[in-house]
Amino acid sequence: MNPGVLVPLDFEWPEARAVHSFKTILIGIVLEALPFIVLGVLVSSFVQMFVPDSWIRRFAPKHPLLGIAFACLLGFLFPICECGMVPVIRRLIAKGMPLYVGVVFIVVGPIFNPVVYAATYMAFRNRPELVYSRTGLALFVGAAVGLFVYAFVKNNALKHSAASLYGSDGEGEGDQRGRSRGRGHGHGHGHGHSGGNRFFAMLDHAGAEFIDMGKYLIFGSCVAAAIQTFVPRGSLLEIGQHPYVSHFFMMGLAYVLSLCSTSDAFVASSFVGTFSIGSVLTFMVFGPMLDLKTTLMLSSVFRPRFVLLLSVLIAAFVLLGAHAADLLVLTY
């Protein structure tokens, strides 16, 4: 800059304005989502430490439609994080729970629970139809995927049999928990603690889960804020208003960000006005069901062909349902 040119004190370079906008959007998303992250990890940790797996296995119905309804009810009553669901379901399937029931729980559970519903409502107070559509689409996708798995998947989808997974019938839950701790995100999903230590184990689990989900929240919020700030609005509008490209773009974004379902609604709300409402719904439903970290965890539990089948089914039913909701419910 020419030293002889005086710059007004209130002048801001465009880059400074962009950085200020980025920080404002980022802080806003994180502060709105944090209370629901804390609530979610506390509820999840309580369920992990104080609700035995045997309770869930004992009441699992045999009829496929009742089994799907039971899996959805589990997700509502026991809001466990996506990271916690996969190890729990692995144990339950290995001990006799039908595969399709476990799949429905993995797919529907991250969305169909009171904590996520409250977070979505807070993020979209002015668009309540989007809140209802998220819950309804999650139930539709879960039921469709569950019925498909029930009808067509007859072989064992687990990588390990019950015998190889547990070693012997006498193996304790503490050993299972230790084995699980070596996989995934380091969560101790088990009930092998004594009554006096369970409360502290719950707090330890909640702290680890908060750190784990918090890093995904920060990463996702940074990406969302960067897109909103630095990508030209004209380019975003061109992508966001396309009837098909917008859905695929938001699915890819949800997959890469790997956000927790208690916080993704706040990230999604930052795209309202730029992207179509249907594609925002796609983001909020597809992400909790299938993202990068969930795919890695599923691959450690299920056979690769089954993980691929599950991924294709989820993507297809989410796209179909979101497009239908965009035409019938969300557009007015």
Rank of each mutant, 00 (worst) to 15 (best):
L139W: 00
V104I: 04
C81H: 05
F124R: 00
I89H: 05
R91Q: 08
W55S: 12
L139G: 03
D53L: 15
R58Q: 15
L130M: 10
I93H: 07
G136F: 12
N126Y: 03
L77H: 11
I111G: 00
A123E: 00
I56T: 09
F112M: 09
R134W: 04
L73F: 15
M85H: 09
K95A: 14
R91W: 05
I56F: 08
A69L: 15
R90I: 07
I56H: 06
G67T: 08
K95V: 12
S54W: 12
N126W: 02
V88R: 11
V131G: 06
R57W: 07
P61R: 07
P114M: 01
R57S: 13
R91V: 10
R90H: 14
F70C: 06
C72I: 15
P128N: 04
V86C: 11
A71E: 13
A71K: 12
I56K: 07
V103G: 02
I93W: 03
R125F: 01
G109Y: 00
Y117L: 10
P128M: 05
K62C: 14
L65P: 09
P61Q: 09
A118W: 08
L74M: 14
V86P: 13
R91P: 01
M97D: 02
L65K: 10
L92Y: 05
R91S: 11
R125P: 00
T135P: 02
M97Y: 03
F140D: 10
L130G: 02
E129N: 09
I106Q: 01
I111W: 00
F112D: 07
I111P: 01
F59G: 03
L137V: 09
T120Q: 12
P128F: 01
S133P: 05
V88N: 05
M122S: 08
R58K: 15
